[in-house]
């Protein structure tokens, strides 16, 4: 009996091919599942937080919770207004301090710095972006808090040890600038050199070129950088929790202690496990954070598309 080598080879080849096709099929199932993971996470987070917030929403009307200034879970008073006001203060102040510096530094890196200086400064800003925020909080406790309490607050005749809304805003401004800088630099550097050459060619100064041409052309990118920074300040937890003082009251001035939405969760965490209603209230805070950040993100995408059309240069 002779062995039919051809048949054997064919069998081996076809089994190898079927193995490859099997791998292809199963891997594509797995990859499809992974592709939907982001959407599943998004939906899962929203739905679970919403479901767990229902008890508090059923107990008290939403409008009264958002406008009441009385937060005292032990007495079943759930007013979110102090935390909301605190969050608005912190976000506004740190964006007001951080955005001009971030745009300035981004323009410096993209348009002014050259050669080794540029590489060095850009690398340093990457490093700053990577430092954990708890380190910023700790350093601020050592440096910024005493400075605020001893030198800055007395100038405004405020009596404080140095923790409070202004301190948090200052530190958060520092924490978010590196993110805004690297994104803004990216969008400035992706602009074609023709834009600069044309503008300089018709007699504009470098400043006029930057202001009227480059900042507009890179506008959508810079805009999304600012929104990213906004989201970070808005949801920042660790720095505010260390520096804000943790008093749930409507802040009387920018130097007073207060509470933001995330610090409300951190500071009342101990009570969270025991009282079901408090637990639900704090999960509702989480839901509020999610909704605001997500609304902002989706809104930003629409605005960005508009800006791209309005400031298009091609």
């Amino acid at each position: 009996m002779t062995i039919d080598t051809d048949t054997l080879r064919n069998q081996a080849q076809s089994s190898r091919l079927s193995r490859r096709l099997l791998a292809e099929r199963y891997s594509s199932y797995w990859l499809t599942a992974a592709g939907y993971l982001a959407i599943a996470l998004f939906a899962g987070i929203t739905l679970l937080l919403l479901y767990r917030s229902l008890p508090i929403l059923a107990e008290y009307p939403l409008s009264s919770m958002l406008t009441s200034a009385n937060w005292d879970p032990a007495e079943s008073n759930f007013g979110f207004l102090p935390a909301i006001v605190g969050t608005v203060y912190v976000t506004t102040l740190s964006m007001a301090m951080g955005v001009p510096i971030a745009i300035g530094a981004a323009i410096y890196i993209a348009e002014y710095a050259e050669g080794r200086t540029k590489t060095l400064v850009a690398a340093l800003i990457d490093v700053l972006a990577a430092i954990p925020s708890v380190i910023f909080g700790l350093v601020a406790l050592i440096v910024v808090v005493p400075f605020m309490g001893n030198y800055v607050a007395p100038v405004f005749s405020e009596n404080t040890v140095g923790v409070g809304i202004f301190t948090v805003s200052l530190v958060m401004a520092i924490v978010v600038t590196p993110f805004m800088i690297s994104l803004s630099v990216e969008s400035l550097e992706s602009l074609p050199d023709e834009l600069r050459e044309t503008s300089l060619g018709v007699g504009a100064t470098k400043f006029e070129t930057i202001r009227s041409v480059l900042l507009r052309a890179a506008g959508p990118g810079i805009f999304s950088a600012i929104l990213l920074g906004f989201g970070r300040v808005f949801g920042a937890t660790i720095v505010p929790a260390l520096l804000i003082g943790g008093q749930t009251q409507i802040p009387s001035s920018v130097f007073s202690t207060g509470q933001t939405l995330p610090t409300l969760i951190v500071n009342d965490f101990g009570e969270l496990m025991s009282l079901p209603l408090t637990q639900s209230a704090l999960i509702f805070v989480g839901l509020m954070l999610v909704i605001v950040v997500w609304l902002f993100n989706f809104g930003a995408m629409i605005v960005q598309r508009r800006l791209k059309r309005r400031w298009q240069y091609q």
Partner: peptide, 11 residues
């Protein structure tokens, strides 16, 4: 990416 980390903690 822009969701605050504390939301993941609460989740």
């Amino acid at each position: 990416w822009g969701t605050p980390p504390i939301v993941y903690g609460v989740f």
